[in-house]
Computed example of a mutant assay.
Amino acid sequence: MKFLVTGAAGFIGFHTAMRLCQAGHQVLGIDNLNDYYSVELKQARLSQLTGMPNFSFIQQDIADRDGMQVLFQKHQFERVIHLAAQAGVRYSLENPHVYADANLSGFVNILEGCRHNAVSHLVYASSSSVYGMNSKVPFAIDDAVDCPISLYAATKRANELMAHTYAHLYRIPTTGLRFFTVYGPWGRPDMAPFKFTKAILDSQPIDIYNNGDMSRDFTYIDDVVEGIVRIQGCPPPYADESEQARQGAPARLFNIGLGSPVRLLDFVGCIEAATGVQAIKHMQPMQPGDVPQTWADTSALAQRTGFRPETPLQEGVTRFVDWYCDFYGV
């Protein structure tokens, strides 16, 4: 099949594009290569992809309405996996307009491209952040998500509502995936696993927020990609099935997480074990926009695809640390 993968130079986008290419699909990747974090790392990811004969790349900003219209018209994609976004909770507190441009305007451009060019399935990235301060655990896809506590979370929830609207109005099958703290080789430098590993190996202190009383449902990248690939092959049904008849649109949402939250201090312990270095810990208060815990209920994903993420934390952390040391020559 012919795929568009947005954010192909990003962490999840790179791994997803690679997996699709290895399966024999034609993949066009786009990315604006912004400097939110190291452009050199993004270029290094792309260098891995450009060796694939069925991969091509165009530097393109999804917020560019005219450019996206031309892209869709020219290439006539069968399926779209939309992973480009302005990420980061804390960054959204200081730079709100870039979130409006990428995550709102950019997403409208994706939806319009799918609408006018007969895309058979749009799979897009949402986030566990939409659950906000939800106290019910584990987080289930039918939980209320009406109170986001960061602009980033609000834009991701807006994406879900926008996708549902387009699915209802134009019968575009859409699937949103709420990712839970993805980590692994080629990971993002702005995320805790990368920042902690770098600081520990450099004998620098790490900040532990909420005095360590936080937990996250850390999910290994290979499990996330497996979920994406399986879901893209399962477009939501139309209103001939009872669930969709009630919902009124070929739109669905799924959590992708390990389903096993880990205390932040225990996660640091895994990095210490993998590096053989003791962390210097600075306890800090809770930061604005943060939540005390995340925990994915993945039963809907398992029911639909027969798959549950399963990579053990220590195994995943060791793979990440090995990649980090190799890539940076530590």
Rank of each mutant, 00 (worst) to 15 (best):
V5H: 03
V5T: 04
T6N: 00
I12A: 04
G13V: 06
F14W: 04
A17P: 05
L20H: 05
G29T: 00
G29Y: 10
N32L: 03
L33S: 04
Q59A: 12
D61S: 11
D64R: 11
R65A: 15
H75L: 11
F77L: 14
E78K: 11
Q86M: 01
Q86C: 01
G88L: 07
L104E: 09
E112Y: 09
R115W: 04
H116R: 15
N117G: 10
V123W: 00
V123G: 06
V130I: 11
V130P: 03
G132M: 03
D143V: 09
S150A: 06
L151K: 02
L151C: 09
N159Q: 15
L161V: 13
M162R: 04
Y166D: 08
P173D: 07
G176H: 04
W186G: 01
D190G: 04
P193W: 00
F196A: 12
P205H: 06
N211V: 02
M214G: 02
S215Y: 09
T219I: 06
Y220A: 06
D222A: 13
I228F: 02
I228A: 04
P236E: 09
E241Q: 11
E243K: 11
Q244K: 12
R246K: 12
R246H: 12
G248T: 08
A249Y: 06
S260T: 07
V262H: 07
R263T: 02
L264Q: 10
L265K: 05
C270I: 05
E272T: 06
K281A: 08
Q293A: 13
T294M: 12
T294V: 07
T294R: 04
D297I: 03
E310Q: 14
V321E: 01
C325E: 13
F327A: 15
V330A: 15
